[in-house]
């Protein structure tokens, strides 16, 4: 909890920055990222928002941008994520034919595979992490307590 309090005090030192300034920081990070993204080769695509996330983190970690300058906008956008995904979901109306092109059975199997793959990714990644944490704890005697 110590670090939570630390970030709280860091946040209360300043009032939240005006919302237009926060938007401008987001817009500039996105713009710079969009200039970097095409520099990656076609076989190794790195899209703008992924670069943007990394860039924003680096700017925060190097204290060039302070939390109070972006916090409010970020919390607002994250609270909207599920809604912002609705157009992606409805976009499936455009390509429902990929499930029926190779026959109904293939379509059903495809959906079953996607459902299983989602669960596989969640469980395998989580258990692998638990495994590495156990190695750190038992072999390297590193404390893995986090709060």
């Amino acid at each position: 909890m110590a670090s939570n309090q630390a970030t709280k005090t860091e946040g209360t030192e300043h009032e939240a920055a005006p919302i237009l300034q926060q938007m401008c920081i987001f817009a500039s990070v996105l713009f710079v990222s969009s200039l970097i993204s095409p520099l990656f080769p076609k076989s190794f695509p790195v899209p703008t928002p992924v670069i943007g996330l990394a860039l924003m983190y680096v700017l925060l970690a190097s204290h060039i941008i302070k939390l109070y300058q972006v916090e409010k906008m970020a919390d607002f956008l994250i609270s909207l994520i599920a809604f912002l995904f609705v157009p992606s979901g409805i976009q499936m109306a455009n390509s429902l034919n990929v499930f029926t092109d190779d026959g109904a059975l293939t379509g059903v199997m495809l959906i079953v595979t996607i459902i299983l793959a989602t669960i596989i990714l969640l469980v395998v990644i989580s258990y692998t992490t638990a495994g590495f944490m156990a190695i750190s704890r038992k072999v390297f005697h590193k404390s893995t307590d986090v709060q």
């Binding site: 670090s3 939570n4 970030t7 987001f26 817009a27 990070v29 996105l30 990222s33 703008t48 928002p49 992924v50 943007g52 996330l53 990394a54 860039l55 924003m56 983190y57 925060l60 970690a61 939390l67 972006v70 916090e71 906008m73 970020a74 919390d75 956008l77 994250i78 909207l80 994520i81 809604f83 912002l84 995904f85 609705v86 157009p87 992606s88 409805i90 976009q91 109306a93 455009n94």
Partner: peptide, 30 residues
Amino acid sequence: YMSAYKPGGDILFWFLNPATIAFAIPLYRR
């Protein structure tokens, strides 16, 4: 879909860009 929904859907879809980079903030907090 293309004629009626997509123009509006695309505008909302764009906001996934800033919403993705917003995750740098919960990351930096911890």
